[in-house]
Design a protein around this nucleic acid. Structure first.
Lengths: 250, 250
DNA sequence: CTTGCACCTCACGTAACGTGAGGTTGTAGG
DNA sequence: CCTACAACCTCACGTTACGTGAGGTGCAAG
């Protein structure tokens, strides 16, 4: 903090002013002021007018700071590391790695969802926001029930089908569920031929969707049991249908 | 914002208080207060005492907010999207994807550097911080000159060698550079047999390090030409040696 | 003497809440 | 009726790493 009366002499020492440092490092002047304010890096000299003069030693410290910043450390951590109070570099590196890997994983999940959403928008055109939102919710729910291998498998199967086929499939489900509901509400015996036929069609369509994978099938089941709505559909009434079909299969 | 005099009637509407919402969504009460403060989600009802009452419509909006948050959007963007002023979902999704991918890339570079640093610490033990810092700086510089394929290649080659071999290699370099410097300062003719032998050894060691890859070799050259220090060594004096060797090879 | 650039010191703004402080409401039990 | 105690309320400051002026000084050139 010593002031230096003779600017010329100080600069011949190799000391540099803040603007020069900024140019050379690519940092902003404000950033250097900030490091000074917080005591992370206070230039050891000042001119009589109060201008900051960074000595070679200061610049070396700044390099350390930049290096540690490029690893994602916070200013406080950096200060503790350089002044070596607190933890050792090894411990801190380990922590930072864990933190970073978690963040990256979370951001990659975001990316996957965003990409899926982009595909949806591409297929269906610019739909109203809230329709897309329920799609996002579905995706988030799915991630809770399927492993990522299962999701990849489902994705691969979906690629096999055209938009028309998918729409047709959805209409068939609507019709099938309506039929089952009618029989159930009429109190038709689950053992009757009509219901048996419906149950067979039901199971066939489930196999169709799951690709015959029993793991996916159970995940799908758990999701319908535990979520209160899927794809904007209330699950409770559908669960009734599912138990009715279950009775028919026994 | 209408207040509702009769709490009972309001709650029979299915309206819920803030704590209940927090429990069901996993958000904190403070977060809901915050959404209210900023106008992102203001509950449509209040009890006479001023307690927030969230209606089904409010809850639906909250779901949308949560869905968009899970994609990494900011609260302002979310508000504009839901109230559909500003850009369409498609445009915003595209932007967000780009932003996220950039961040992930940057964080992955951090991860690579951190992992390299961890390995260094593992090999050399808990060295003083500033020694490690120069290593970090080296890594950052290398990234500017080598493509990531080249870096992977260098990494793979290094795994082949033991710590002892690497140290021996470094000592050989020191000795070789000292010898070359001596001849150069003595003004020995580059065409003389002594210098020719040294030049051969030099090139052999370069091939050793680069694995004979000419791409890596030129990258290495560029780095030594353009950086002022590498691995804590001033490059300027070494550059003299390099031009001397170059003359010997012609 | 003025122009203009680099420097200085406040000091508020940012994003999305966390964390009390200090006071009211609602409800179950004595 | 009184008392806990949980749940609610409204300020209001703290966090991270600077960005962005505002208003004033230092210094070399014309």
């Amino acid at each position: 903090m010593a002031t230096y009366p003779d600017t010329e002499r100080a600069e011949r020492f190799g000391a540099m002013k803040v603007g020069e440092i900024a140019r050379q490092t690519g940092l902003t002047v404000r950033t250097l002021h900030h490091y000074d304010e917080t005591g992370l890096l206070s230039p050891s000299l000042r001119t009589a007018a109060g201008h900051r003069l960074y000595t070679a030693r200061d610049i070396a410290r700044l390099q350390q700071i930049r290096a540690l910043r490029s690893l994602g450390f916070g200013l406080v951590e950096i200060r503790e590391l350089i002044d070596s109070t607190g933890m050792t570099l090894g411990q801190v590196v380990e922590m930072q790695l864990v933190r970073l890997e978690e963040r990256i994983a979370s951001e990659q999940r975001m990316c996957v969802r965003l990409a899926a959403l982009r595909r949806l928008i591409g297929e269906r055109g610019e739909a109203p926001v809230d329709a897309m939102i329920t799609a996002i919710e579905d995706m988030t729910k799915m991630e809770n029930y399927y492993t990522k291998e299962q999701l990849a498998q489902l994705e691969a199967r979906r690629e096999q089908f055209s938009k028309e086929q998918l729409d047709a499939g959805a209409r068939e489900w609507d019709e099938l569920m309506a039929s089952v509901r009618k029989e159930m509400e009429n109190g038709t015996d689950p053992k009757s031929e009509v219901v048996q036929a419906l149950a067979k069609r039901w199971m066939a369509k489930v196999r169709d969707f799951t690709g015959g994978d029993p793991g996916i099938s159970t995940s799908l089941n758990r999701m319908w049991q535990e979520e209160s709505s899927i794809h904007g559909i209330e699950t409770a009434p559908v669960r009734e249908l599912m138990t009715y079909i279950q009775r028919a299969l026994n």
